[in-house]
Simulated scan of single mutants.
Amino acid sequence: MIDTTTFVGLDVHARSIKAVALDIMTGEVKSATFGYDAAAVADWVRSVDPAARCVYESGVTGFDLQKKLSDLGVDCVVGAVSKMIKPAADRRRKNGRNDAEFLARMLSVGNVAEVWVPDDECEAARDLTRALEDARDDLKRSKQRLSKFLLRHGLVFDEKTPSGQRKKNWTQAYWSWVKSTSFAERADNEVLSYYVDDVKQAAESKARLEGLVKAEAGKPRWKRRVDSLCRLKGIDVMMAADLVFEAGEFSRSKNARSFAARVGLTPSEHSSGESVRKGGIAKAGNKHLRKTPVEAAWHHPTCSAHSKDLAKGQAPDQAARRHAAKGVRRLVTRRGSMLERGMHKNKANVATAHELACWAWAVGLMAEEGREKRPASPSGRAAIVRT
């Protein structure tokens, strides 16, 4: 129950904030403009109504303003921009005041889907895994630049083993071949040296961040959940940490299906009347959280149905460990049956990722709460992927 009659919409930018306060009892509207100054906004809100409730849209400005306003005693939420119901007519009259007033009116009638705001430790852990993903992308691009530079000069690594099998790139043999390569033009040699250094620096950055993520995952707050999720095949420490950090709290989702829907792994739908049309996955929500189960699912075609062995130092929740073993057996069996039916491998992988996300939610929740009682069935049978 909200015991206030004043609602404030904030249109937040990097250097400015437009605020509009709406009193739903009198219909009075007040507005003000500030620099990016949480204290000034808080003082103005308190002068309008100390019990006022504020909202701004989620976006690139993150949660900094919400945390600062909350610390100053101002009730503020972050609204999910993807779920804002905006009139089509507003497309031609967009400005800061209109946007802020729209937010205030939506908040006053309860039409704002609030975003869960992580604490500073959780947000810092997320930043680590996202930086690691950036480092992986940088390394991939650096390698591509080097290999394509050599290809433009007609140079391709083609060494073979005694058995006739071609050796892979980025091995010790590959780097020996690169070091032995030289060009007639000095500029080309300088470019080659630059690309080689770029690849090595990117690899070092990636390795350093992996160590930082692993250290963060070993903290008491995360360790049991990370170790428990590692019991699912296809999920290593880095992937488990990504799931745990991005999810924040698995208990935020009421069941496995809602978690999979929040990740965006449920089928999209475009239906009207008697016409029912299912499409590809919705791709809603957190793309970092969605990417992990999709990548992990590619391991299942070659996995056995046996549970994973414990790695040194792992201490998973025992109930979650038993539940993960059931999940491994089901996922491997189900993936095999999909491939036997002739389902396309990409479609089968997304279906596996959907169910893997459901099992990850169940295992993570059990580890989070230390529960011995099994949560609701995480199979999500009805909403996987239609053939």
Rank of each mutant, 00 (worst) to 15 (best):
T5D: 05
T5H: 08
S16G: 07
K18R: 15
K18W: 12
A19R: 00
L22I: 03
I24H: 08
I24Y: 08
M25R: 15
M25P: 02
E28Y: 12
K30Y: 15
A32K: 04
F34P: 02
D37M: 06
A38E: 07
W44M: 03
D49L: 01
P50D: 11
A51C: 11
C54V: 05
Y56Q: 13
Q66W: 04
L72F: 03
D75L: 05
C76A: 08
G79A: 06
V81S: 09
K83Y: 07
M84V: 10
M84A: 14
I85Q: 12
P87W: 06
R92P: 03
E101I: 01
M106V: 11
M106G: 09
L107S: 04
S108D: 01
V109R: 13
E114G: 00
W116V: 15
D119L: 08
D120I: 13
E123R: 07
A124F: 04
A125K: 06
A125G: 03
R126Q: 05
A131I: 05
L139M: 15
L139H: 15
K140G: 12
S142Y: 04
K143W: 08
L151P: 10
L151R: 11
R152S: 10
D158H: 10
T161K: 09
Q165F: 14
K168P: 12
K168A: 08
Y174S: 02
T181V: 14
T181K: 13
S182Y: 10
D188T: 15
N189D: 12
Y194N: 14
D197I: 13
K200N: 13
R208S: 07
E210T: 14
W222T: 03
K223F: 00
K223W: 01
R224M: 09
R224C: 07
V226I: 05
D227H: 06
C230I: 00
C230H: 00
L232G: 00
I235K: 00
D236W: 02
D236E: 15
L243A: 03
A247E: 01
G248H: 08
G248V: 02
N255Q: 05
A256C: 07
F259Q: 07
A261K: 09
G264S: 08
P267D: 11
S268V: 06
S271F: 12
S271I: 15
E274N: 10
G280S: 13
I281P: 00
K287Q: 14
R290I: 00
K291T: 09
A296L: 01
W298N: 03
P301C: 01
P301T: 00
P301Y: 00
T302N: 11
C303E: 05
L310G: 00
K312T: 11
A315L: 11
P316E: 07
R321P: 05
R322A: 06
R322H: 07
H323W: 13
A324R: 09
A324M: 01
A324G: 04
R329P: 03
R335H: 10
R335L: 04
M338G: 02
E340Q: 13
H344Q: 10
K345M: 07
A351R: 01
A353R: 02
E355V: 15
L356P: 00
C358M: 07
C358D: 06
A360D: 02
A360C: 04
A362M: 01
G364R: 13
M366N: 01
S379A: 15
R381V: 06
A382R: 14
R386P: 08
R386A: 15
